[in-house]
Nucleic acid binder design. Structure first.
Length: 838
RNA sequence: GGGUUCGUGGUCUAGCUGGUUAUGACGCGGCCCUUACAAGGCCGAGGUCGGCGGUUCAAAACCGCCCGAACCCA
């Protein structure tokens, strides 16, 4: 009997009328939140037979909780709570990603300082202090949302344990030949003086001058005599002229075809450059001829690599002109731009200078235009295994399925290996030194990790290559995602076992994780990096399932943003509505779709809470104390009671399948509809009549069984109210959230007759309403044409009908209302309608 | 510029492996205080399923183009 619907047990009887008065979430919810934390209700049971593991991307510590967090964590929590009941135990950890540039930025903003004003160590300490404050606040917020995290399993990506894992990962990938150090073009912020990744830059519209500059033709490609001695190059960045290495012509540009293969001379600086054909030229802009400088934009880098061009570096790390710029050396790029335009004009090479508006790439942090510099950076190889990583993505089940295409598309479009070094202050250091003489890389020993090469000594006294005894520490730190892509391994306690000479897990059962829930905005970098790093370390993809959530929009379907001023802070919502109502709202959309914040949906949730409370009060009033409700065997159940339990069976099966497939919206809708319409509107009304004059074991049993089952089915969505009712009526000791998920009890009943009976009730209500009668008005006699089986009795009771005559056959006459004395004839609902003609 | 996803009553949605009268909620109108609940119950109005074309006996669903929105990558 253990795998049946939730039936009454022999628990100690609760006091009669355990539920009275109104439900007051403002006092009930905080009490439970506190109790769940102090009693460790959600503790992971490592010894359990079955378990479920969730690996969530740790939120970046960059500010306060927003609606996106509320939504996302709530969705994760639906899964966690459902699985905790159905599987036994759940590993649901919580982490903070506080080792990156976002945290530095938060610290600078919070303390109104700049990182460059402090020694690295001091600044790092400030970052940690600020993050601690925010994290404590964030933790309180998450707990107040009833997210069922195991608070004994939390981590920060800056903590030593995670630093060790991150550095181990670096060493392992290097030994596998998956990493290399290379001098190559990188995206560079001259203000922050660091390499940045593509995701850290954003578009900004800027007003500039578009300058037409004459280049002298030294030689045409086909040896012909040119009509003119010069051609025109249009550029917004004349300060890059000293870095000009070639000129490009589009292959379909007939007018300039004769120049291809020839050479041109750059004004002022005088270097001769090749004229080359390439289809990446934008023929619509300017003259159709374009110069390539190392480097003005990403296109220049592509050309540089595709055509093996020279490297001419005219701008250094701080945005200052180099000696290559001759007279302009030492100027900022802005000063040089003005000076060069002036000199071009004087020399007669400046043909025109006009206003121009275009989009530039800036660093999201400081809005300063990025440069492309050749610097020495560490990379993780990606490009040689695109096919394999695509296959790794296919090994996971995606919910919704269509989100896999984003992963696929990202890999298809990959053109760069992953630059993982950052010239930053607060982050996890690279565990290595370089020989001062020969540059040999000296890596830390695995058992010594974590190390900080700026403070710690290298593991050798002399360079194994050249014997030199002095070393330079690597000053760079890892990209945030080089670490936060390791959370599945952090959860499982991945580590190097020096004795065994291999990697091991502290909790091997946790890898791979069952589920990765996250937003669709971070599929391309966070999820992708997590999949490939874990895959390279373990040979296995880190997740069975990936559940992708959409973004929260405002009521007009627009993204919430500070600049639009349409941000709704969660605390404002939670002041107005119960947490359970907010969770009901969060359950209201298909997974993966963006969806708007709508107050009406929270009001609907609030009404559901009241309905649940009131229905529970009625069940409580109608039935004896829990211990006195007797178990009734299926054969001894009245038809109407067995019908309810059979319907409930179907609902249990459906809801379970919905949760299995992360279809919270459908689960919500079906559960609400069955509870409200079938249980409250139909069955409860019937039960009231049946229990009117004393006890009825069959109905009491069905009522309590259904009610217990409802509470459990609602528990993942509405944790507070279900716990409150559960405790009051059924169990004062154990939480509903650690009880077992209900399973269908195998009840069989005449569902057709039940359905017909409910339609008859509905028709009788309509009749009374249409005739201005109260619903409890007495009717003398009703004839039913249709199969209602043994339900005629309950129907008569609930609708206050004197006598019911039921006929299985269709009537000869369709409808007949006889007399004025409330005699009533009713057509049996037509059922079994024909399905088309084919 | 390239790609992905989406477009269903006033609002948010279900349906989308083609087949009765297109689902539900919110909102709106009317009636009803029936001893759990008026934050309730019952009834009702409201849709050319973004547009045009195609496939088919049959299209909200499948195909093409167009319009519009969002996101990702340039």
């Amino acid at each position: 009997m253990s795998d049946t619907q939730d039936q009454p047990t022999d628990e100690p009887p609760a006091e009669q009328n355990a539920i009275d008065g109104e439900y007051d979430p403002s006092t009930v919810e905080p009490e439970w939140q506190e109790q769940w934390v102090t009693e460790e209700t959600y503790a992971y049971d490592g010894d359990a037979d079955t378990r479920y593991t969730i690996d969530t991307p740790p939120p970046t510590v960059s500010g306060n909780l927003h609606m996106g967090h509320l939504y996302q964590f709530t969705l994760q929590d639906f899964v966690a709570r459902y699985r905790r009941m159905s599987e036994g135990t759940v590993f649901f950890p919580f982490g903070y990603d506080d080792n990156g540039i976002a945290s530095e930025r938060l610290t600078e903003r919070e303390l109104d300082i700049n990182h460059s004003e402090y020694p690295r160590r001091e600044f790092q300490e400030k970052c940690r202090d600020v993050c601690d404050t925010y994290e404590a606040e964030f933790t309180t917020d998450i707990q107040s949302l009833a997210i069922s995290v195991d608070w004994d399993h939390t981590y920060k990506t800056i903590e030593p344990r995670v630093q060790r894992i991150s550095q181990l990962s670096f060493l392992d990938l290097y030994e596998q030949g998956r990493e290399y150090r290379k001098r190559a073009p990188t995206i560079w912020c001259p203000d922050c003086e660091t390499a940045i990744s593509q995701v850290e830059q954003e578009d900004l519209d800027k007003h500039t001058k578009f300058n037409d500059i004459a280049f002298e033709i030294v030689e045409t490609g086909d040896g012909s005599e040119p009509e003119s001695d010069t051609f025109t190059i249009s550029t917004t960045r004349p300060e890059l002229l000293p870095a000009c290495v070639s000129v490009f012509v589009h292959p379909e540009d007939d007018e300039n075809q004769h120049l291809v293969g020839g050479t041109a001379r750059v004004p002022i600086f005088g270097q001769e450059v090749d004229i080359i054909e390439d289809d990446r030229v934008d023929m619509e802009t300017g003259s159709g001829l374009v110069m390539c400088c190392t480097f003005g934009d990403q296109n220049d880098i592509e050309w540089y690599q595709a055509h093996d061009l020279d490297l001419r570096i005219a701008i250094d790390e701080s945005g200052t002109m180099t000696d290559l710029a001759g007279d302009y050396e030492g100027m900022t790029t802005k000063e040089a731009r003005e000076a060069i335009i002036e000199d071009l004009d004087e020399e007669g090479s400046l043909l025109e200078s006009r206003d121009h508006e275009h989009t530039v790439q800036v660093h999201e942090r400081c809005d300063v235009e990025v440069e492309y510099l050749v610097t020495e950076q560490w990379y993780v190889k990606l490009l040689d295994k695109k096919e394999e990583y695509l296959e790794a993505g296919r090994e996971m089940d995606w919910f919704p399925e269509k989100m896999f295409t984003r992963y696929k598309h990202w890999i298809d479009g990959l053109e760069w290996d992953w630059c993982i070094s950052r010239q930053r202050d607060s982050g996890i250091p690279f565990p290595l030194w370089y020989c001062e003489d020969c540059g040999e890389e000296i890596f830390a020993n695995r058992e010594d990790l974590p190390v900080d090469p700026l403070a710690d000594e290298p593991p050798v006294d002399a360079c194994p290559e050249c014997g030199c005894e002095t070393f330079t520490p690597e000053e760079d730190v890892f990209d945030t995602w080089a670490t936060s892509s390791l959370t599945p391994l952090v959860n499982a306690g991945w580590d190097w076992d020096a004795d065994a000479g291999e990697f091991s897990y502290e909790r091997p059962e946790l890898y791979p994780a069952n589920l990765r829930p996250q937003g669709h905005d971070i599929i391309s970098f966070w999820l992708f990096h997590t999949v490939i790093k874990c895959y390279e370390h373990t040979g296995e993809v880190p997740f069975d399932h990936v559940m992708i959530n959409g973004m929260v929009l405002d009521e007009n379907r627009e993204a919430m943003s500070k600049s639009k001023g349409n941000v709704i802070p969660p605390e404002e919502v939670l002041q107005k509505f119960p947490v359970d109502a907010a969770r009901y709202w969060a359950a209201g959309t298909s997974i993966g779709d963006d969806f708007p914040y709508r107050e009406g949906d929270l009001e609907a949730g609030e009404r559901l809470l009241q309905k649940l409370w009131n229905a529970s009060r009625l069940v409580d009033q109608l039935t004896p104390s829990t211990g006195a409700v007797e178990h009734v065997e299926e054969d001894d159940l009245a038809e109407i009671d067995r019908w309810l339990l059979a319907e409930l069976d179907e609902t249990v099966a459906n809801i379970t399948e919905r949760f299995d497939n992360y279809e919270f919206s459908k689960a919500r809708m079906e559960l609400r509809s069955f509870f409200w319409s079938t249980f409250c509107d139909d069955y409860l009304e019937i039960a009231k009549q049946r229990l009117d004059d004393g006890g009825n074991a069959s109905t009491e049993f069905a009522l309590v069984t259904a009610h217990r089952t409802f509470l459990k089915l609602f528990a993942p969505l509405l944790p507070h109210i279900t716990e409150e009712i559960w405790t009051r009526i059924y169990d004062e000791q154990a939480s509903i959230h650690t009880s077992a998920w209900p399973a269908p009890g195998g009840y069989e009943a005449d569902l057709d007759a039940g359905e017909t009976a409910m339609e008859v009730i509905s028709a009788l209500r309509r009749y009374k309403t249409d005739n201005g009668l109260p619903l409890n008005a007495e009717l003398d006699r009703v004839e039913i044409y249709g199969h209602v089986g043994e339900f005629a009795g309950p129907v008569a009771e609930v609708m206050h009908v004197g006598s019911i005559d039921a006929f299985d056959e269709e009537p000869d006459i369709t409808t007949e209302i006889s007399g004025v004395d409330l005699d009533y004839s009713l057509v049996g609902p037509e059922f079994g309608s024909e399905v088309g003609d084919f």
